[in-house]
Deep mutational scan, measured.
Amino acid sequence: VSVELPAPSSWKKLFYPNKVGSVKKTEVVFVAPTGEEISNRKQLEQYLKSHPGNPAIAEFDWTTSG
């Protein structure tokens, strides 16, 4: 189950709350306009370098507050 949070234009930000008793931590995933899922800052940096014209990296908020 995921919750969609505010994201930069043409992107989606999905929040996957951890299940009770789960060892997996809460996860935030950005979905690029191409449909590619980005789950960490390093991936995001690589994606933005190879896909010019996207929002600046500073516009991506990895917190769950939206």
Results as ranks from 00 to 15, higher is better:
P8H: 05
L48V: 03
V3I: 14
L44R: 00
V31F: 08
A7C: 06
L44E: 00
P33G: 01
L48K: 01
D61W: 04
G21S: 09
P17L: 14
Y47T: 00
S22K: 08
G53A: 05
N54P: 06
F60H: 01
R41Q: 12
N54G: 12
K13F: 03
T64E: 07
H51L: 02
S2G: 12
N54T: 07
P6W: 09
V3C: 14
T26W: 15
E36D: 07
A56T: 11
A32R: 00
L44I: 02
F15Q: 06
V1F: 12
E45M: 12
G35M: 03
E36M: 05
I38N: 00
E27K: 15
K12N: 04
F60R: 01
E45C: 09
S50H: 09
G35A: 02
Y47P: 00
Y16N: 05
W62H: 01
D61T: 08
N40S: 13
R41P: 14
N54L: 04
E27W: 15
G21T: 08
K19S: 12
T63Y: 07
N40I: 03
K42R: 12
I57W: 06
S39Q: 10
W11G: 00
F15S: 06
R41Y: 14
V20P: 14
V1W: 10
V23D: 15
E27F: 15
S10E: 11
E27C: 15
S2N: 08
T64I: 14
E37L: 15
T63D: 09
L48H: 01
G21Y: 03
Y16H: 06
P6R: 09
S10L: 13
S39Y: 15
G53Y: 05
W11A: 01
T34F: 02
V28N: 00
G66P: 12
P52R: 04
S2H: 11
S10K: 15
N40E: 07
Q43H: 08
P55L: 05
E45S: 09
I57F: 13
N18M: 11
V29C: 06
S10M: 14
P52H: 05
N40W: 03
V29N: 03
G21Q: 07
A32P: 03
L44H: 00
E4Y: 08
T63M: 07
D61I: 08
S22L: 09
N18C: 14
P55I: 06
W11N: 01
S2K: 09
S50T: 13
R41G: 08
A58K: 09
P52Q: 05
T34Y: 02
I38E: 00
N40Y: 05
P55Y: 06
P6E: 08
Q43F: 05
P17I: 15
K49G: 08
E27N: 14
E4C: 10
K13N: 01
D61E: 07
V23R: 10
E59W: 06
A56C: 08
I57Y: 10
P8W: 04
K25S: 11
K42T: 11
T34S: 07
P8N: 04
T64F: 12
K24W: 14
L5E: 05
V1T: 11
V28Y: 04
K19P: 12
V23T: 14
V1M: 12
T64N: 09
E27M: 15
I57A: 09
G66N: 11
P6A: 08
F15P: 02
E59F: 06
K12G: 05
L48G: 00
H51G: 01
Q43E: 13
G21I: 07
R41N: 09
W62G: 01
E27R: 15
T63N: 10
E59R: 05
V1K: 10
L5T: 05
K19A: 14
I57T: 05
P52V: 05
Q46W: 10
A58M: 09
K49A: 13
K49C: 09
S2M: 12
K19L: 14
V1S: 10
A32K: 00
K49F: 13
V3L: 10
V1H: 13
L14V: 07
L14H: 06
E4I: 08
L14P: 01
L44A: 00
K25P: 10
F15E: 07
G35K: 03
A7S: 06
D61Q: 07
E27V: 15
Y16Q: 06
K13Y: 03
L5C: 09
N54V: 04
L5W: 07
W11D: 02
K12M: 07
V3W: 09
P33D: 01
Q43N: 06
L14M: 09
V3S: 07
E37Y: 15
W11L: 01
T63I: 06
V20S: 10
R41T: 10
Y16F: 13
S2E: 08
S10V: 05
F60Y: 03
V20D: 13
T64Y: 14
K25E: 13
S50D: 13
K42V: 12
V31R: 06
S39E: 09
V1I: 12
T64V: 15
N40D: 12
L14I: 10
L48R: 01
P17Q: 12
A58N: 14
K25F: 13
K49M: 13
T64Q: 07
S50G: 08
Y16P: 03
N54Q: 10
E36V: 07
G35T: 01
K42Y: 14
A58W: 15
S50V: 09
Q46S: 10
T34E: 03
W62Q: 01
L5H: 06
A56Y: 06
Q46D: 13
V3N: 07
L5M: 11
G53R: 04
R41S: 10
P52N: 04
P6C: 09
K49I: 11
E36S: 03
E4A: 09
L14W: 09
S9F: 12
T26V: 13
S50K: 10
E36W: 02
K24N: 15
S50R: 10
W11R: 02
V20L: 12
I57C: 05
V28K: 01
T34W: 02
Y47R: 00
E36F: 04
F30S: 00
V31G: 01
E59S: 07
S39T: 14
A58Q: 13
A58R: 10
D61R: 06
L5V: 06
S65H: 11
L44S: 00
D61Y: 05
S2W: 14
P55C: 03
L5A: 06
S22P: 09
Q46M: 12
S39V: 13
E4L: 10
P8M: 06
L5S: 05
K13M: 03
Y47C: 01
V31M: 07
A32I: 01
I57M: 11
P52S: 05
Q43V: 08
K12V: 09
N18L: 10
Y16A: 06
A32Q: 00
N54H: 06
A7Y: 04
K42W: 14
F15I: 12
E37T: 14
V23E: 15
P17S: 12
V29T: 07
K25A: 12
S10I: 05
E37C: 14
P6G: 07
E36Q: 06
A58E: 15
Q46T: 10
Q43T: 08
F30I: 01
S65T: 13
Q46V: 10
E59H: 06
P17F: 15
S22H: 10
W62E: 01
K49Y: 11
P8K: 05
G66R: 09
P6N: 07
L14S: 03
E45V: 11
W11E: 01
K19W: 12
G66W: 09
N40G: 07
Y47V: 00
L48N: 01
R41E: 10
P8E: 04
P52L: 06
S9R: 14
A32M: 00
I57R: 04
W11Y: 01
P33E: 02
E37W: 15
G66C: 13
P33A: 03
S22T: 11
E59K: 05
E59N: 06
W62C: 03
P17R: 12
G21W: 03
E4S: 10
V3Y: 11
E36H: 07
Q43I: 06
P55Q: 04
G53E: 07
I38Q: 01
F60L: 01
L48S: 01
K42S: 12
E37K: 13
R41K: 12
V1L: 13
I38D: 00
K24A: 14
V31E: 03
V29W: 07
T26D: 14
V29F: 07
G35I: 00
E27H: 15
E59I: 05
P6Y: 07
P52D: 06
G53P: 03
A7Q: 04
V28G: 01
S65N: 13
E37A: 11
K12L: 08
S39I: 13
F30V: 00
G66M: 11
L14D: 02
T64M: 09
G66Y: 09
N54I: 02
K12R: 15
I57N: 04
A56R: 08
W62V: 02
D61V: 07
Q46A: 13
E59M: 08
T34V: 00
E45R: 13
Q43W: 05
S9H: 14
P52M: 05
F60I: 01
L14A: 03
E36L: 04
K49V: 09
I57G: 04
G21C: 10
P55K: 03
I38Y: 03
K42Q: 12
S2A: 14
V20W: 13
V20R: 09
I57V: 08
S22D: 12
E37M: 15
T26F: 14
K13V: 04
V1G: 11
S10F: 12
V31Q: 05
G35L: 03
T63R: 09
V31W: 06
N40M: 04
R41L: 13
Q46C: 08
